[in-house]
Amino acid sequence: MTASVPVEYSLFLAAILFVLGLVGVLARRNVMFILLSIEVMFNAAGIAFVAAGSEWAQADGQVMFMFILAVTAAEVAVGLALLLRLYRHFTTLNIDAASKMRG
């Protein structure tokens, strides 16, 4: 049954989802939506890994997906903490407000 779905189609799905996430990052100005789009891109990378692992019947793809999961969890925690900090400081979620930051 798995051989009936070519690996190219899974990679097409991953590519389409990745591009959708990229469009979200580039087009939206709300930090919340940018973080959501980054989630979509992580997820698309995970689809590519799992599809490749399924094609060659190796477990490595799923192991890589678990590492992606750990990285995503850490990224979301830090990103949402930064979002709350930004909202407290500027009382807006516009990412352009942070361009006035001085280091």
Partner: peptide, 30 residues
């Protein structure tokens, strides 16, 4: 999709951690 691709464990992780934990984190912030 993961389930059909022959990765049932990753499919379960996707539901539990992504759709469960991470999205709940987003909802808390909202």
């Amino acid at each position: 999709v993961f389930y059909v691709l022959g990765a049932p464990f990753v499919a379960a992780l996707e539901v539990i951690i992504y759709a469960g934990a991470i999205m709940v984190l987003f909802l808390f912030v909202v």
